[in-house]
Design a binder for these strands. Structure first.
Lengths: 243, 243
DNA sequence: AAGATTTTATTTGTCTGACATTTAAAAGTC
DNA sequence: GACTTTTAAATGTCAGACAAATAAAATCTT
């Protein structure tokens, strides 16, 4: 692990990159302890605060964890699916909100990915997952539910569907797409009529999963996508010419 | 933005989270300048190094960028698709390598997602993207190509397919899945026979895209997935009883 | 000798104060 | 008015110190 002090980039960024490369290449393995901050400052010929800034960068990416005390230090972290989820959700959410991604584009991506899970989910869904979906549908039918709570329940429903595929890699990839849509969905005002429609489709999706009918799940997801996009269009139109 | 100094977590982590929340909630908007490090240390009642560690954490997530000099400072960064790609690839790659995800699981996820793009790509692919795919197929046919280079070309081919869907959100999500598979794919030794088979399928996929035949693209992707999994199984079997 | 307690050493977390470097704006010069 | 110089503000880096946590070693007690 070497750095070039003449490079224009910040030393702490260079050091972080050097350690990151070592982790990715397998030179440093999971749970291995890095040299102490003092040793690293010697090794890279920089001060301790600079080393610390580098380590904090890596900690922010969940690449290392630190522990105080004797026999403490910085350890290479095994990135868990949990860690990866939350990072992905943060990034995806900001990516959509900051880059003026159209509702249609996001919606298309989300439903395309979700439909990719549908056949697997139809095969493998557990009764627990089906029960979760039914419970969320029940919650969605409560008339006093706020729009935000309705959307949150929608996310839970769809995550259960995705988890039904029983493939953690798929679940991880989808987490970003499904959750990142939520702020966009929150812009929609759901009328009693539109909620009824969505709940009906949710019920049909749950039915299809119960029957393990992949084609029907797919068809209903297509319907749901179309309906969702229509709702968004209505909102956009009302914005153009308000009452 | 407030922090609680009594909390067990590191101050720099708390400060980073407070600023992160402010960005996510929209309290801080893109290109807005954060207070200077000195001002932040006053505000949070901590020292400048602690503030700096917090800022480096945010910089590692591409949430802020910094600029030196007068009228410099830390600015809220617009997360680009580029930034998000590279972060996602790093995370996905480590996630797979560190968590003993089986080849089958990763492969299933990757092809499921890719098949989600196929119908859109069949509709929208440009002739440029088709040309890229043909060029990569040509490269793959070079007999002197190393296994690593063959895999790299494979990634380029499949990314072109995904980009054909003309949906940046989909491309972003897929980048992780496709690229993260590469280290796993690199474990496969491609014989002349298996390369021939893969190239043949690539050609048929390109043909199908040229004809805008979504069903055929899908079918060929299924074939390719099956063949890839078979190759991996052979490798695993050879490991069990080596020559 | 075994177990409980205290001490000690190590390591990260934090602070203070300083200097270097970069950069844009202000001041000065022709 | 255009160019040059100066200045001020901000981040980047350094050195040295102390605080706090923690595990291991040493000591004490029974």
């Amino acid at each position: 692990m070497k750095i070039d002090p003449r490079k224009p980039a910040d030393l702490s960024a260079q050091i972080a990159q050097a350690i990151r490369d070592a982790i990715i290449s397998g030179e440093l393995i999971v749970d291995e302890r890095l040299p102490s901050e003092a040793e690293l400052s010697d090794q890279f010929q920089v001060s301790r605060p600079t080393v610390r800034e580098a380590l904090k960068r890596l900690a922010a990416q969940s690449l290392i964890r630190t522990q105080r005390g004797a026999s403490g230090g910085a350890f290479v972290n095994r990135i868990s699916f949990e860690d990866a989820y939350s990072q992905q959700i943060t990034t995806s959410t900001l990516l959509l909100s900051m880059n003026a991604v159209s509702f249609d584009t996001a919606c298309e991506a989300r439903f395309s990915l979700e439909r990719a899970c549908a056949p697997l989910s139809a095969q493998r869904r557990t009764s627990d997952q089906l029960a979760t979906m039914r419970a969320e549908i029940f919650r969605q039918a409560q008339p006093r539910l706020s729009d935000e709570a309705f959307c949150a329940s929608d996310v839970t429903f769809h995550r259960a569907l995705v988890d039904g595929a029983d493939n953690p890699v798929l679940s991880y990839q989808l987490a970003g797409a499904v959750e990142a849509m939520q702020p966009l969905m929150n812009m929609i005002t759901f009328t009693a009529r539109s909620r009824e429609q969505i709940i009906s489709l949710h019920n049909q999706i749950a039915d299809a999963l119960e029957e393990r009918d992949a084609a029907k799940v797919d068809a209903k997801l297509v319907e749901l996508e179309e309906y969702t996009r229509k709702l968004a269009q209505d909102v956009a139109q009302q914005h153009r010419k308000p009452a």
